[in-house]
Nucleic acid binder design. Structure first.
Lengths: 214, 214, 214, 214
DNA sequence: GATGAATGAGTTTTCATTCAT
DNA sequence: GATGAATGAAAACTCATTCAT
């Protein structure tokens, strides 16, 4: 019943699978060799496909291929964090504390980084100059924004406008700190997402709480 | 005494000045156009030199040139932070608190970023994958180490080994947070180094203090 | 009796119609985009067929497809001119003068060019170097030969061998002149075939007549 | 005294010679293989140079290279014909008849074609579709214009405006006829420029003269 | 018979790097 | 020591052509 080609994994796949195949290979190659140093041949070889397939299913150009990689990985990370932290607006029955939300969000963050190290590398370690800088910048900004939203909830002692204005740099610092920890984790530190999350919380939570009351 | 070329400002400079001239141009060009998109012609033109001169005084290859740029800028940053924070070992007469040292260090960090934006860009925004990943990684590690040293002094409630083991990820997080803030600063946030330093201290200082006593 | 595909207008046409469909599309596309710049996809799209169909009914290769285009268009032109000029051998009851034959031939020539501009373009404006040069050369030679035959009849004052030897370059010149006029016509000159024919006759007829008697 | 490399003909030539070297090779290759079928490697090999040299001295792209070829060859042909036919305006002491001017012009035309067959091929046999169509068209238009100018002088029986309006298509036809003859010449006919010129004059001169008086 | 999907082979173009002067 | 001129090597991208369905 299964077509005989399923064995080789080559011919006649539905487009979505092909695109995924191509993006997976691209993320991996770009992460390992670096976007500029990697050639489309490298990507094709990693995907087990011919170069034209990479072009057909990868957006038509190397740059567009990277763009799609960045978007996919950023979406993955953002979705993971958002789901774990809970709905942005405090739903009626949702009585979790901000600390708890933050904890869960950070755990998801570190868990995703650990699971998809290549994707993270594409997001954070590629050249942030040139045409693609904006793409990376936007992807990171979306994450920072989501975190800022979370932090705003904690800064209730202040008026909303001030809270938000303060939340953004704090979120930027927090995300940066998470990245720094992730780097340390990748260089030999623990890979346990929970431990990493606790470490970061221990560092910043008191400070955040204090900022509530000015 | 003055070399005869002072008239044109060009010919027959001592090698060190030549190297500086080349590195300055390279940092600028790499920062603006990006390492991979920039050509050696671009560097030569920016330096006002011929290409062979760039090769002679820039290390002999494009990659080595970038390596030297990274090292110089990392040194600049590390030196600046170190000087501001004070001697690593508590000198007898030095009774400044750790908080004060950290504050001064952070101010120097943000001040240097602001003053030498191109250098910072070369350090943090260039490809951190590929052949040069190690170089960047090492440069950042040196900074993280220096900060860890600083933090160790605060974790006096613990035995030295534990203190140091704890200090490294905290330092990684702290440096990451500083980078995140710097990004935010570059994207429209305040550029005042003191304000940035205070913001970061407010976020982490209480947490750090608490970690002292377990 | 009507093939069942008349409903869609597509499927299951007799091979000849398919070939015509393919050649029509090819002539159009090659003429507009140029043989080399046009892709087989372009031809297939213009024909409303899939690419394999173009290969099946178009001769199996792009080059052969062009060859067939050239042949068909050359035949069309030659047939049109021949029919208008009359039977090559002076048929008994045919007492039209050579001038009249030439006039009718030229009118047919210009009329065909105007009506089938794409075909003419394929014949005269495509690369006349490379592998296909011979094909174009042959196609033109056939036309020149037919004209030479016509002119021979006028050079009756000379012995047949001389007449024919003289007729060929004259025919070549005449055909070239017609092409030159056609170019002018296409670039803004009149498109009236009769006017173009008269213009050309006015230019060359006296000369041709004179050549009759040495 | 002569630099030792003059023996190989390779290194350190002045730019003009290099450009000529490149154009010569390009004209030859484009003429023989055809513009589209020829690769830049072919041109480089023919020139005995590396490909980058072809790009440096050939305008930076294949298309620009062809453009320059076309321009050079068109200039060569136009200059040759113009010089032979004499100054366009009848200079006071210039009492040559129009027929004489035309004869000399045609001789020069055929002589140049014969001498620079490759250049002629590039001018007349390359694809006249695509981006380069205009370039070829313009080159030919300049020649047709020059001939029209010549013919205008003969149509003195008519008012100047009419004369010029009539002269252009006649010139187009005449140039076309010359090209047709040249084709015939290249396919086995005589290569004697004088003979070719006389043949063409015999064909058209009476007609031209008659057009003078309506 | 008809086609969507797949690829091998090639082309233009760009640089990092090095001589000959 | 300094440079203009030269090149080897590679990389993105395209397309005629053919299977597997």
């Amino acid at each position: 019943m299964v077509p005989p080609t399923s064995a080789t994994g080559r011919r006649r796949l539905p487009p979505e699978q092909r695109e995924r195949q191509v993006l997976d290979a691209a993320v991996r190659v770009f992460s390992r060799i670096g976007f500029h140093d990697a050639s489309m041949d490298d990507v094709a070889e990693q995907a087990g496909l011919s170069k034209p397939m990479v072009y057909t299913h990868g957006g038509g150009s190397k740059e567009e291929l990277l763009r799609r990689c960045i978007r996919r990985e950023a979406d993955r990370l953002l979705t993971s964090v958002s789901l774990a932290a809970g709905a942005p607006a405090d739903a009626p029955g949702d009585d979790r504390t901000t600390e708890d939300r933050l904890r869960r969000g950070l755990r998801a963050f570190f868990a995703t980084l650990t699971t998809h190290r290549d994707g993270w590398s594409v997001l954070y370690r590629q050249a942030r100059t040139g045409t693609l800088a904006d793409e990376v910048h936007d992807a990171r900004a979306r994450i920072v924004d989501r975190v800022a939203e979370l932090l705003s909830a904690e800064l209730t002692g202040r008026d909303p406008a001030t809270a938000r204005a303060l939340a953004t740099p704090l979120a930027a610092a927090l995300v940066g700190a998470a990245e720094g920890l992730a780097d340390w984790s990748a260089s030999g530190g623990t890979e346990d997402p929970d431990a990493l999350a606790e470490m970061l919380l221990a560092l910043v939570w008191t400070g955040l709480s204090r900022l509530r009351h000015h």
